[in-house]
C-alpha cells in the first residue's frame, strides 16, 4: 500500500515535469522561432518559476501584446472547461458500463441490431457529430424560432449540449471495450458456477463480472481522457465558448500551456488514483500501477 502510494507520487511528478519540459520546448515555436538550447533553458526556468509563483504569472495576447495577470481570470476559463470535461468523463464511464449491462441482460436478438448501429456510430469522427448537432439546431431554430441552446456562446456558458457531444463517442468506445471485457469474463468457470447456483443476471453482472473486469477497464480510462481532452479543444473552438482552449490559444506561452495542462491533469490523477486504490482494496487483487 505504502509502496503503491509512493509509486503514484513519483508518477505524478514525472508527468508534471514532462508537461513542463514539453511546454518549454513548444515555447521555442511560439511568437517567433528561436530554436536552441539557450532559449529552451530560459523557457524552462521561466515556466518553472511562474508555476511555483502563480500569483505573478503573466499572460499576453499574440496581436495586441497586452499583458495581464493570469489569476484570478484563469479560474473563469478553467472552471467551465473542467466541469464539462469531468462531467463528460463520468457520463462516458457510467453510460459505457450501463450500456454493456443492458446488452448483457437483454437477449441477443434484440440487442444485435442496436449493437451494430452503435458500433457504426462509434467509428464516426467527432467533427461529423458536431456538424450534425449544429446543423440540426439551426434547422430547428429556422422552422420553429426555438433556440434549443445557444450554439455560439462565447461568454454564455452552455453546459448540457457540450457534455453530451463530448461524451457521445467515448461512451460508445467504452461500451465496446466493456462488452469485450464482459464477454471474456463470461467464458470463465466462475460465471457458469454462479449461473448454476441460480443467481440473477444482475447480481452476476454487478457483483462478480464487474469486480473482475474492473482492472481491465481501468487500462482503458487513460486513452479516454486523452480523447476527451483532444475533442474538448475542437468542441470549444467550434462552439466558440471561452474555455481553457480559448485561454491557451489566445494567450500562448509555455507558462499558460503548462499551467492549463497540469490543472487538467490533477483532478484526473486524483480520480484515477482513488479508484485504483479502492478497486484494489474492494476486490483484493494485487495492486497494479496505472
Amino acid at each position: 500500500m505504502a509502496k503503491n502510494v509512493l509509486y503514484q507520487l513519483i508518477k505524478f511528478f514525472l508527468v508534471i515535469i514532462g508537461i513542463i519540459i514539453v511546454s518549454s520546448f513548444l515555447g521555442m515555436f511560439i511568437n517567433g522561432f528561436a530554436f536552441g538550447w539557450g532559449s529552451f533553458q530560459s523557457n524552462l526556468v521561466l515556466t518553472t518559476k511562474s508555476l511555483l509563483n502563480p500569483k505573478e504569472m503573466i499572460a499576453e495576447t499574440i496581436y495586441e501584446q497586452t499583458e495581464f495577470r493570469v489569476f484570478p481570470t484563469f479560474w473563469n476559463y478553467y472552471n467551465y472547461s473542467i466541469t464539462i470535461l469531468l462531467a463528460a468523463f463520468f457520463v462516458t464511464v457510467f453510460s459505457g458500463i450501463g450500456l454493456s449491462y443492458i446488452s448483457y441482460i437483454l437477449p441477443k436478438k434484440i440487442t444485435r441490431p442496436f449493437a451494430n448501429s452503435l458500433s457504426f456510430l462509434e467509428a464516426l469522427p467527432d467533427i461529423f457529430v458536431i456538424f450534425v448537432v449544429q446543423y440540426i439546431t439551426i434547422l430547428i431554430y429556422k422552422h420553429t424560432d426555438i433556440l434549443l441552446f445557444s450554439v455560439a456562446g462565447s461568454y454564455e456558458r452552455v453546459y448540457l449540449l457540450p457534455i453530451i457531444i463530448l461524451a457521445f463517442l467515448p461512451s460508445l468506445f467504452f461500451w465496446k471495450v466493456s462488452v469485450l471485457m464482459v464477454h471474456q469474463e463470461l467464458e470463465k468457470p466462475y460465471v457458469t458456477l454462479a449461473i448454476g447456483k441460480g443467481m440473477g443476471k444482475t447480481v452476476i453482472f454487478g457483483y462478480h463480472i464487474m469486480r473482475n473486469a474492473a482492472f481491465g477497464l481501468m487500462n482503458h480510462i487513460k486513452p479516454i481522457i486523452w480523447i476527451l481532452l483532444s475533442n474538448l479543444i475542437i468542441l470549444e473552438r467550434l462552439f466558440n465558448v471561452y474555455g481553457i482552449s480559448h485561454f491557451i490559444l489566445e494567450f500562448p506561452s509555455p507558462q499558460t500551456l503548462a499551467l492549463s495542462l497540469i490543472m487538467i491533469y490533477i483532478p484526473f490523477f486524483v480520480i484515477l488514483t482513488v479508484s485504483q486504490i479502492s478497486i484494489s482494496k474492494l476486490f483484493g487483487k494485487e495492486e497494479i500501477g496505472t
Binding site: K11, L14, I19, I233
Partner: peptide
C-alpha cells in the same frame, strides 16, 4: 515512463504550437 506525460498532452496542441508560427502567425 517518460512517454506518460504525452497521455495528457493532446497531439492537436502539440502540432498546433509547432506549426502555428510558420504557417499562420508569421504572415500576420
Amino acid at each position: 515512463w517518460s512517454v506518460e506525460a504525452f497521455n495528457y498532452f493532446p497531439a492537436v496542441l502539440l502540432s498546433y504550437f509547432l506549426l502555428s508560427w510558420f504557417l499562420l502567425f508569421e504572415f500576420h
